[in-house]
């Protein structure tokens, strides 16, 4: 793939997670997730074109159907059904969140992780960016209070790991491909069943309002 296109796609993935951190609307966070998944799908399709590996085509199709189309549609329907227009606030305020994001990005780009981001030397900057994206999507899960946002955080973390594996040239391992498919299946199942169950029980998806365990 053209380096500039790869740069564009890795930038899209990173920025979409930054956006998920800053947006206050669930709808925008879901759209950002859809765009992020589309970037992953394009990268997988490119990998298929390069290698002619049919299993990669299969993964591309699954990612396209499930992560780009079905999952965002499901989340949007959930938002409309439960009127979850606004996401719950973050644990840290915007300024502190931005400081943490900056620190995590700097840590991911530090010399300490150089061997990791140099697995494929020509992809060094992409690997650094996707490694930083792993950190900040992990922070998204911790920093967000909404169950929907946390689910999006986990799905984004998974996208970042897939992006890292593509840049590191690991996406052709069949076992890894199966791992990606299984994780998608499990999380879509969790999202469909558990989020609705949580809303049914608590009338909210704000996990800070759920304090039944404090007995």
């Amino acid at each position: 793939m053209d380096t500039s296109l790869l740069q564009f796609l890795s930038g899209i993935i990173f920025l979409s997670i930054l956006f998920q951190h800053l947006t206050k609307k669930n709808f925008s966070a879901v759209i950002a997730y859809g765009i992020q998944s589309l970037a992953i799908a394009i990268m997988l399709f490119d990998s298929f074109l390069k290698t002619n590996d049919n299993s990669l085509l299969c993964i591309f199709l699954i990612v396209l159907i499930v992560k780009v189309i079905l999952a965002p549609t499901f989340f949007i329907k959930l938002i409309q059904k439960h009127k979850l227009t606004f996401s719950a606030s973050t644990v840290l305020n915007v300024s502190l969140t931005l400081i943490c994001l900056g620190t995590l990005t700097a840590v991911a780009h530090s010399q300490k992780f150089l061997p990791l981001t140099n697995i494929v030397p020509e992809h060094h900057s992409f690997l650094s960016l996707s490694f930083a994206a792993i950190f900040i999507s992990l922070f998204l899960i911790i920093n967000r209070k909404g169950a929907l946002s946390q689910t999006l955080g986990i799905l984004s973390l998974e996208n970042c790991i897939v992006a890292f594996s593509i840049f590191a040239g690991l996406e052709q391992f069949p076992a890894l491909q199966i791992g990606i498919i299984v994780n998608i299946a499990i999380w879509i199942l969790i999202a469909t069943i558990f989020i609705s169950m949580i809303y049914k029980h608590f009338g909210t998806l704000d996990i800070t309002s759920i304090k039944s365990l404090k007995d």
Partner: peptide
């Protein structure tokens, strides 16, 4: 029960993140 649901959600989020 709400408390069981909360425990299950906590379990899912923490373990799934860990396993990723």
């Amino acid at each position: 029960k709400p408390s069981a649901m909360e425990a299950a959600w906590k379990y899912l989020i923490i373990n799934s993140t860990g396993l990723l």
